[in-house]
């Protein structure tokens, strides 16, 4: 159905480094042209909205990774010509963690990260 086969080794990876190398991303450089839209504090750790926009020319792929999840790679989106490098999904988070957006553009990999807090809740002003 999809053009590329499901990347089992990347989705099974237990560390960020292994997942990156299984994706062929190596050590991507941090880029201000990759933007993550996500809440600072998750309302519900089971459903955390994460959006990624890439301003890098020729963006081919966008991946979302959650550092503290047992399987850190959540999703990979292949962006064909004519589709905007602007995707949103919702992910599970068991605890406070950095969320990574990894972007492949012109054959090179870039990334951005943002901390999303998962809290016990209950307080009030």
């Amino acid at each position: 159905l999809a053009e590329a086969a499901w990347n089992k080794s990347a989705f099974d990876a237990k560390t960020l480094d292994t997942a990156m190398s299984a994706m062929g991303a190596g050590k991507p450089v941090e880029s201000a042209d990759v933007q993550i839209t996500a809440p600072d504090i998750a309302e519900n750790g089971a459903v955390v909205p994460v959006g990624v926009v890439s301003n890098l020319p020729n963006t081919e792929q966008i991946s979302i990774m959650i550092e503290k999840n047992p399987n850190m790679l959540a999703a990979t989106f292949d962006i064909p010509a004519g589709t905007l490098p602007d995707v949103q999904t919702r992910v599970k988070m068991g605890q406070t963690s950095d969320v990574y957006a990894v972007v492949k553009a012109d054959g090179k990999y870039y990334m951005a990260k943002k901390e999303i807090k998962v809290t016990l809740g209950g307080c009030g002003g």
């Binding site: 989106f77 292949d78 905007l84 599970k92």
Partner: peptide, 30 residues
């Protein structure tokens, strides 16, 4: 795996892992 087509042209293909939420949500633009 997921594929979205506009008429017969693929406009997005994606691979998901188990970290995507129950009843997955997806938004994109072409």
């Amino acid at each position: 795996e997921l594929t979205a087509k506009h008429n017969d042209k693929v406009v997005l293909s994606a691979q998901f892992g188990a970290s995507v939420s129950t009843n997955p949500y997806l938004a994109f633009k072409f």
